[in-house]
Nucleic acid binder design. Structure first.
Ligand code: DCP
Ligand code: MG
Ligand code: MG
Length: 508
DNA sequence: ATCCTCCCCTAC
DNA sequence: TAAGGTAGGGGAGGAT
């Protein structure tokens, strides 16, 4: 397991750190071999008067100690105005129930890393309560419990931590996975041909909150924290009527309102998402024990060994049961591997299903935009665009050697395989965590050193809690900090971190 | 060769 | 006002 601490938003604070105290700034200054007394001092309350006096040994404290022991060398760039930071722990040592087995896992590289990020947006120079235009109420300045409250309202925190909750809830299930992988030593001799179903809820966050309002189903609806037509709150999910206007996850609510004035905004209901996700997985587990969770609204099901005559009938049954138990629609893709099943789901949406038989794979991919392939995001798409490649058919014309030369060994091979519909991954259980971390990149503003220390401490405590929850210890500790870029403007997003450079240091 | 650190990229 | 988290894959380049 890893631990990650994210520290976000400290404008001019880092300057102070740099000028006055070694601490964090020292930690990052390493390049010039500053001997930071201990970069992490800032994280250790005991150094500052033992705020945690009564608390039993905390992981966070241990972490701090580690850093102390190591004379971390960090230095704050002379420019000094830090903006955000992040901390994480990687390759944890599995402690199963508290007993440390660290010595027992020689074969598995156990690392424990904690990374801390520190972000800051506004960097008004002086420290007074400036806070610039955005010196809002809800920031690390005003709220001592900011981190805790923030996580309660963060959608990304919700979906980012969902997997761990799922694992705990369904760990009792027998996983008879990997029987297949064992017998797959000779992959292609499987007489049975693999069949995968990929299931994904339609506009999940919206579907759940309007599931009892049928009259809203053909009106444009989105889930967002704010309904302010000038606001920079982000749309989390938009239903399909709203998507016709161009409303989609991630855009600002003001932009959504601009292109869709009658857009109806609903608030989040995280508890309902949790409940519906449980119902969703209950249905899947009922039909098959080879279920791989992707997220709270999405999973792969390997039905190869079910002896099902018609996978489409099964998919249809699953979708029907999901709707009957949750009141929400799901779509499904059926194909011979995970890649094609996932792509098929996209075609199937909304409220549909799609089967792509092996003989149809080539034509299915021929005109498909490369951006639709999982693993190809904005950057890769742009790079390929520069080579005049925009569809899988065009990508297929490039040799594997050439792709590997341009994009690296693994990435090149992935591109070559995916453009041909080849995917050798197996549906399986989620393996043990490799890292655990926490970060905050919104609302982070410090007016003094105390603010930043408190914030970092909270982040450490959060990571400590999560490590404990996993029954695991870390081995490598990573601290990441976001620092306001030299001439960065005010963040576009309210209370955002704006244009930052990222700094990272880790110790083992 | 393999590992390690410090990133970037991606997905939900 | 608004809640830009979390984790894994992988590449570059250096240490071993
Ligand atoms: N940038 C994003 C992407 C997703 N989510 C949340 C809201 C989504 O409802 C949920 C599931 O993500 P999906 O990618 O499955 O998107 P939807 O379910 O909303 O729509 P679709 O019908 O395309 O699956 O995760 C989010 O908050 N922000
Ligand atoms: Mg979905
Ligand atoms: Mg999904």
């Amino acid at each position: 397991m890893d631990f990650i601490f994210l520290f976000l938003g400290v404008p001019y604070q880092l300057e102070q750190l740099a000028n006055n105290q070694p601490k964090v700034s020292a930690f990052f200054a390493a390049q010039n071999r500053l001997v930071a007394e201990d970069a992490l001092n800032i994280m250790d309350p005991s150094l500052k008067g033992g705020t945690l006096a009564g608390v039993p040994v905390k992981d966070g404290e241990q972490i701090n100690r580690q850093f102390e022991d190591r004379d971390c060398q960090i230095e704050e760039p002379s420019s000094s105005s830090g903006k955000s930071s992040e901390v994480r722990m990687a390759e944890p040592i599995n402690t199963e129930d508290g007993s440390s087995i660290s010595n027992e896992l020689p074969s598995s590289p156990s690392q424990f890393s904690v990374s801390v990020k520190d972000n800051q947006n506004e960097s008004k120079s002086p420290a007074p309560s400036i806070a610039g235009p955005s010196n809002p109420h809800h920031s690390t300045i005003e709220d001592p419990n900011f981190v805790e409250n923030y996580f309660k309202s963060s959608r990304l925190h919700f979906i980012g931590t969902w997997r761990n909750r799922y694992r705990k809830r369904f760990c009792h299930l027998p996983n008879e996975f990997s029987c297949r992988s064992v017998s797959t030593a000779n992959a292609s001799d499987n007489s049975q041909k693999t069949t995968i179903i990929h299931v994904d809820m339609d506009c999940f966050f919206v579907s759940v909150v309007i599931r009892n309002d049928p009259e809203l189903h053909d009106k444009p609806v989105a889930v967002c924290h704010s309904d302010n037509p000038k606001g920079t709150a982000e749309i989390s999910s938009a239903n399909y009527p709203a998507r016709e206007y161009g409303v989609k996850a991630g855009i600002f609510v003001r932009d959504a309102k601009a292109i869709c004035p009658h857009l109806i905004i609903f608030p989040y209901n995280f508890q309902a998402y949790e409940e519906v996700a449980d119902q969703f997985y209950n249905v899947l587990h009922k039909h098959c024990n080879k279920v791989q969770a992707v997220s709270c609204d999405e999973a792969f099901v390997d039905i190869t060994d079910l002896g099902e005559k018609d996978p489409e009938v099964l998919a249809s049954t699953i979708r029907k049961e999901i709707f009957e138990t949750t009141g929400c629609k799901a779509s499904a893709g059926i194909a011979g591997n995970m890649l094609m099943a996932r792509l098929a789901t996209r075609t199937a949406k909304p409220d549909g299903q799609c089967y792509v038989p092996p003989e149809r794979v080539d034509e299915y991919l021929q005109e498909l935009p490369i951006k639709a392939l999982p693993g190809i995001g904005y950057v890769l798409e742009e790079k390929l665009k520069k080579k005049n490649i925009s569809t899988c058919g065009q990508l297929r014309l490039i040799s594997k050697d050439s792709l590997q030369k341009d994009f690296g060994k693994k990435t090149g091979e992935m591109l070559w395989n995916y453009s041909r519909g080849i995917d050798n991954r197996l549906v399986g259980v989620i393996q043990e965590n490799k890292s655990v971390g926490a970060e905050v990149n919104w609302g982070v503003r410090f007016k003094d050193l105390q603010d930043s220390q408190n914030f970092l401490l909270k982040l450490c405590e959060e990571v400590s809690l999560r490590l404990r929850g996993c029954g695991v210890q870390g081995r490598t500790f990573t601290l990441k900090i976001k620092k306001r870029r030299k001439d960065a403007l005010e963040p576009i997003k309210y209370m955002g971190c704006g244009d930052c450079e990222n700094l990272s240091r880790s110790i083992t």
